[in-house]
Amino acid sequence: MNGLGESLAELGQGGAAALAAEPMQSSGGEGHTHETSCLNCGTALVGSHCHACGQAAHVHRTLGAFFHDLLHGVFHFEGKVWRTLPLLAWRPGQLTREYVDGRRASYVSPIALFLFGVFLMFAVFHATESHDEEGHAANVQGLEQNIARLEREIADLRGKQAQARASGRSSEALEDEIESRQDTLDTLRDLDANIGKGTDGASPGKVTSDFPQIDRAIRKFNANPDLATYKLQTYAYKYSWALIPISVPFLWLLFPFSRRFHLYDHTVFVTYSLCFMTLLLVVAMIGGAVGAGGLVGWLVFLPPIHMYRQLRGAYGLGRVSALFRSALLILFAGTALLMFFLMIMAQTSF
């Protein structure tokens, strides 16, 4: 948090210094151009922006304008984000319906807000988690890596044993070493084969599915949880967009064959909903980092309420219909998250 404050302070100081060195000029001062045609596409200008490509009619060539563009790009200072976030938090249905109906100039698009939320979530996660690099490095060597290493060592020892026998030398020491390593290898192979059973070995078979790649990923997750968690974080960040196409069909099931609502409506709904959930996780992580764990516990009740309000506002539902569909949506959301998790696990090679 201190680093963020320092960065903001440095940006502010830079902007102030730029204004002091080269103050912003009025429309008739230096640095303000007076074009009659667009500098980008050459179209004759009518108004403050080019009607062909959308570029601003006049270009400010000042250092102060440069820092203004920087702040604008980083913080979206034109106000869209400050109009979008309150609606996303309290009136998500209205925000969804406004965007679907075409009233978009005042709001941040759902996909832009989603990508920003994902980036922010993982940035906060890495900033607030406790790092143990030595412990992580010690766990990088997984179960299968140890098995492969022992297999190579045993093969080398057998080669040396064959050479010793060919030359008439004693190979008893090599034989004992091979037996010792073979016992260790057999133990590791048994552990790899039985991952998924209970600690007492009495639980029914290991976890299996119809997808061998998923089975392999689950076994390796159990064998090396630290490395698996690290890989999951990396792949979840890369494939976070996949939550949208995974979730949309489930939302369609709430309004099957509807002529009023289409896949586009559902996609906007899902994306804005994921934006809220992502930002809620950011708040929870920050709250946990500052010691507000008790307050963070109450945040678990917000997603169902948010889904209910968004369904009512976006689709114009009555209370009973919205409650029924909200219950189904919670179930569908859990299923979508499970599918996303399995997809990530299947894609991950430990």
Rank of each mutant, 00 (worst) to 15 (best):
M1V: 06
E6D: 07
S7Q: 10
A18P: 14
G28A: 09
G29A: 00
G31C: 05
G31E: 06
E35S: 11
E35G: 10
V46P: 03
G47I: 05
C50W: 00
C50E: 00
G54C: 13
A57P: 05
V59Q: 04
A65R: 02
A65N: 01
L70P: 00
H76G: 09
F77E: 05
W90Q: 11
R91V: 04
R103E: 14
R104L: 03
A105M: 10
S106C: 12
Y107T: 13
S109W: 02
L113P: 01
F114Q: 01
L120R: 14
A123H: 08
V124D: 06
T128D: 14
V140P: 02
Q141L: 10
A155Q: 13
R165V: 15
S170K: 10
T184G: 08
T187P: 09
N194F: 14
G198Q: 05
G201L: 02
A202H: 08
K206V: 09
D210Q: 15
D215H: 04
F221D: 13
N222L: 13
A223N: 08
N224H: 09
K231Q: 05
L232M: 14
T234C: 11
T234A: 14
T234P: 06
K238P: 09
I246F: 11
L254H: 10
F257D: 13
R259V: 10
V268F: 04
F269C: 00
M277N: 15
L281C: 15
V282F: 10
G288C: 09
A289D: 07
V290C: 11
G291S: 04
G294I: 12
V300F: 10
I305K: 13
I305M: 10
A327Q: 04
I330S: 07
F332C: 05
T335M: 12
F340G: 02
